[in-house]
Amino acid sequence: MQQHIVSPEVHEHHTQEQESLKTAGFWLFLVSDTLLFGTLFATYVVLVGHTNGGPSGKELFEIPGFVASTFLLLTSSFTSGLAVLQMQAKKLSGMIFWLIMTLLLGAAFLYLEVTEFVNLVHEGANIGTSAFLSAFFTLVGTHGIHVTVGIFWCIGLIFQLRKHGITTVTKRKISNFSLYWHFLDVIWIFLFSVVYLMGVM
């Protein structure tokens, strides 16, 4: 019977090892997601000139809109980092506060993106208008879906935090969420640069 008795320290150490393995797995997911976006970027760059007589990015993109989106997402990447700092300081309420800020900034970003898409479609620039627009909506839309998933994930995590507090498991979950959110900001930097800035220059 003796070998079945595991001391709490050993158990805790074991959990931590499992959790860090899960974070490693999450990194692999992020890398595979990078490949997904890589192929979508390649498609976009190849098709950007194929407007089929329709509007080009220069005529469609609204500068104030994508500049605001960029700063919203950049700030939310920062606030998700602040949430992780609060977690390390073991301050639950501060952590939830910064997670909610991250959430709100992400929601504002998403609102701008949906408005942009609706306006484009009303102007007659929908996903079927040209190869350029097909590639544009797929690339930017895929990022938008990722942000949407992140927002729901974050809401779920806030509920778990309120229920369980800061444990080894919730810590790992928040760290992974924060990685995911920084990753989405990195993708947006390239969307901002390659799609929008190069589109309006």
């Binding site: 490693a24 990194w27 890398v31 490949l35 390649a42 760059v45 190849v46």
Partner: peptide, 20 residues
Amino acid sequence: NVMALVLGFVIVITIVAGSV
């Protein structure tokens, strides 16, 4: 994670530059 990331970057650069 860094090794996987570097491999990911190599593949992405190959896909994008190769496609163009």
